[in-house]
Design a binder for these strands. Sequence first.
DNA 1: CGCGCAATTGAGTTATATCAAATACGGTGG
DNA 2: CCACCGTATTTGATATAACTCAATTGCGCG
Lengths: 230, 230
Amino acid sequence: MKTTQIGNAWKGAERCENCAIRHLVLFSDLQKSDFDQIHQPIDDISYKPGSIVYGQSDHMEFVYTIRSGLVKLVQYLPDGNLRIVRILGQGELLGIESLNTQVAEHKAITLDPVQLCRIPHSVITLLQQNSPGIHNALIARWQKMLNMADLWITQLSTGKIRTRVSRLLLLLSKNSLDDTFYMPTREDIGNILGITTESASKVTAEFKRNGWLKLLENNHAQVDENKLEI
Amino acid sequence: MKTTQIGNAWKGAERCENCAIRHLVLFSDLQKSDFDQIHQPIDDISYKPGSIVYGQSDHMEFVYTIRSGLVKLVQYLPDGNLRIVRILGQGELLGIESLNTQVAEHKAITLDPVQLCRIPHSVITLLQQNSPGIHNALIARWQKMLNMADLWITQLSTGKIRTRVSRLLLLLSKNSLDDTFYMPTREDIGNILGITTESASKVTAEFKRNGWLKLLENNHAQVDENKLEI
DNA sequence: CGCGCAATTGAGTTATATCAAATACGGTGG
DNA sequence: CCACCGTATTTGATATAACTCAATTGCGCG
């Protein structure tokens, strides 16, 4: 299942300092001297779509920065049902909650090809003691996660199905760099919105017939932002 | 509306140090010397039920610790609809997001008689610079909020109405100190679960008929935890 | 080219919303 | 203390939305 290809592992964080997306990640505020403190290896790992990064209730010794790709966070209900509670993208942090509890609150599954940096908890702990800048970066991620959770409640769990699918597609579209975006499977759409796969399919098929939604290759899609109802 | 009775205002934080619920609040880890840094007044304010502590998008210069009572956080949708995204109780922090953005993400309304400590942002900022212990306290609150948000998504926005009402009542019951709990209005239950007031009423009325839910005076209630389906 | 999974579609059922009316309740003033 | 008023809650009948189940089609991959 977890078909990870361990790429460039290296000691310490020499390359973090020159990382192409450093401005987007946790270490954006750090100084040269801060990086010198880091002696544990920070690995750069590639995942195929559908890989499990970690499971709910897993004991965690790492957090993960998303370099590229999308990851869904899934939570299971006592009755076996599940709900996708967030989708995280570039620059966001996986397993942030485990920094305090050592335990993962969610199952994290990649949606498309994903590259992650795996950061040992001990690195974060060390930086927290010596590099005050890290605090704001962590808080910012907590805040973004909470905003997204609230959005999930108000926009994606409220109202008629057609409205909610619209909101989801618009959200995916806006968060994308170009005018196309990753189109989740109908099953995932169902688990994001708390509806059945069939209902998700009926609405997306209708949007396609109306020409408001166009499916492209590679699980991507494009929407007409003016036609979709909010 | 906002009928606040400003109670004991005082300079600095002499009384914070000896606060009866200090172990529950943001300042639990602070030392004597930390309190000496605080020179802005931290006011203790009482609110009647239904008072607006602050509005969505308000410019914020304070955060609020809940000394007692319950506060609902409400968010409005573009179409005027609303959803209650959280209910906060003793020891929790209102307006935590405004520490970074200066703007409130929610409207905060008291459910029952509430006592809050109003803490200027500047106090938190100061402590963040000089008293590292405050960071963990803040992170812990972010984490608790996020856990609650996820619970709202998975437990309270997923499944049939009867199940969701059950989960809500059980949740309220478990979070209560004694075996009774604050019973929200049917309208609030609707806005918590994303259902209509009538549906909320029909289910709660049914629970009452079955003897699984007993209404007490003072908007309190009691449930038979074994009978309510999860 | 065919296989297997994902997506779509349709018919029938069930759950929930809607609309309207009746009842219960709490607080206020006499 | 009681009657009254306004609001919250309950209830019922009906309309609509969503789910369920089953069958079919479409699509990517070997």
